[in-house]
């Protein structure tokens, strides 16, 4: 029973990772790739770590997995924010389908 829950959680996590990597390859410009990949891959890896927690139960390994989840969330979101900001200052163009850009006046 315990093992079954762990397997299901890990499979869901790998499925989310697949969506994220398809987005990384298919989407047209850098900002959209960053969005899809960051969201899907972060939640997928959190789901895998939850699966580890369910598999080992309360104990040394389980708590390590539980502590890894908030670290993963904070580092992934802050890294995505820094990358987006750096890429804009670097001068990366947005896709031609973009409809709005409020940030340009703020940077100039």
């Amino acid at each position: 029973m315990n093992n079954m829950g762990a397997i299901i959680l890990i499979s869901v996590g790998v499925l989310f990772n697949i969506f994220g990597c398809i987005g990384l390859i298919r989407l047209p410009d850098m900002y959209n790739r960053l969005q899809a990949a960051t969201k899907c891959v972060t939640l997928g890896c959190c789901s895998i770590l939850l699966g580890v927690l369910v598999h080992f139960g309360i104990g040394s390994a389980g708590f390590r997995a539980l502590m890894a989840i908030p670290i993963l969330f904070f580092t992934a979101t802050v890294a995505a924010h820094a990358l987006a900001r750096g890429a804009y200052h670097f001068g990366t163009k947005m896709d031609e389908r973009s409809v709005k850009d409020d940030y340009r006046e703020a940077v100039k």
């Binding site: 989407l27 947005m94 409809v99 850009d101």
Partner: peptide, 14 residues
């Protein structure tokens, strides 16, 4: 991502 036409309309808002 999985939709064939990719319904995106990106932009930066304030």
């Amino acid at each position: 991502v999985l939709h064939p036409a990719m319904p995106i309309k990106p932009g930066i808002v304030k």
